[in-house]
Design a protein around this nucleic acid. Structure first.
Lengths: 159, 159
DNA sequence: ATCGTTTATGATACCGAGCCTCTTTTATCT
DNA sequence: AGATAAAAGAGGCTCGGTATCATAAACGAT
């Protein structure tokens, strides 16, 4: 029962990174895809909550390294904070809820095709692209929304 | 010859903003569309270069006010800095050069249509959307590129 | 035009995300 | 296990942007 799961230290090694505990734990966080999109602070808080002794600087460093190694993809949404997500090779775009920050993914072949045409028409070679739709998610069971509503209620009660 | 051009102070007034010199000059900067996309620092430097005595805090404040008033649109590209552009009502997306930061605009009806479909399928009502294509512009006469090449040359000579 | 009130400005301090530096710790090779 | 090279953690620093506060400018009333 104390037997550890086989960690993907091989992938770390192949990226020229030592298989250290912080790196394994951070990679693990993204691989067990409970929440796919995390910012540095969230990663930090999650690891602290798991009882790990880790520094915020390490989290930032590791996330940057993982992005360079191609393990993670970094997104710059309007929030200001950088959001990371595991890189599964398949490109997709994002729907971001303005209220709760919740992120959903989508892929549309037609949009992808049009993008290439547009860039080509102007003599650009696309290196990267980001399509972000900002909207309000209507999900009643949205955990983020429930959190927001709770805070709203608390604010009301203190007035 | 000392007669001033009729400034759009009426539009400032209608937004509940006094027609002050900094505000008029900043609005003017964006209206004479020599360069359409500016960040706060650029606005600041341009006004200083015109011999104006202005503070960076004022620039940030006015840009925020103008965005709220709907005069300007704020973009969050990957650079980190906020980029502002005059709001002409017509939506468009952006091609951003990774090398020089140059921004080009485009509009594609098909992409717009697909976005609405995608959001609707997921029960989202789009509030706002941003499609940013990051690429390398191939323009030989690009002023930004020339600047970058000059800096590159200087760096080489000092080694 | 001048006065008085209200609002904006400019200087500076501050904030938060993220990066750099330095000392201590840890992973890996032998 | 010991040597060595890399990484971690703590904290300082940078940079874009915001809040504070004393001074200055805008604008309605006189």
């Amino acid at each position: 029962m104390t037997r550890k799961k086989p960690m993907p230290s091989h992938s770390l090694r192949s990226a020229g990174l030592k298989a250290t505990l912080p790196r394994l734990r951070i990679l693990e966080l993204f691989e067990k895809n409970a929440v796919r999109h995390l910012d540095a602070e969230e990663v930090y808080r999650l690891l602290l909550a798991e009882g790990m002794d880790i520094g915020l600087a390490t989290v930032y460093r590791v996330l940057t390294q993982f992005e360079q190694a191609g393990f993670l993809v970094r997104h710059a949404f309007k929030s200001g904070r950088a959001i990371y997500e595991i890189n599964e090779g398949s490109h997709h775009d994002h729907l971001i809820c303005i209220d709760c920050g919740h992120v959903e993914e989508f892929y549309d072949a037609e949009i992808e095709r049009r993008q290439k045409v547009i860039a080509a028409e102007r003599g650009f070679a696309i290196e990267e692209h980001a399509l972000s739709l900002y909207a309000r998610c209507q999900r009643k069971n949205c955990p983020y929304r429930q959190e927001a509503e709770k805070q709203e209620a608390e604010k009301q009660s203190t007035i």
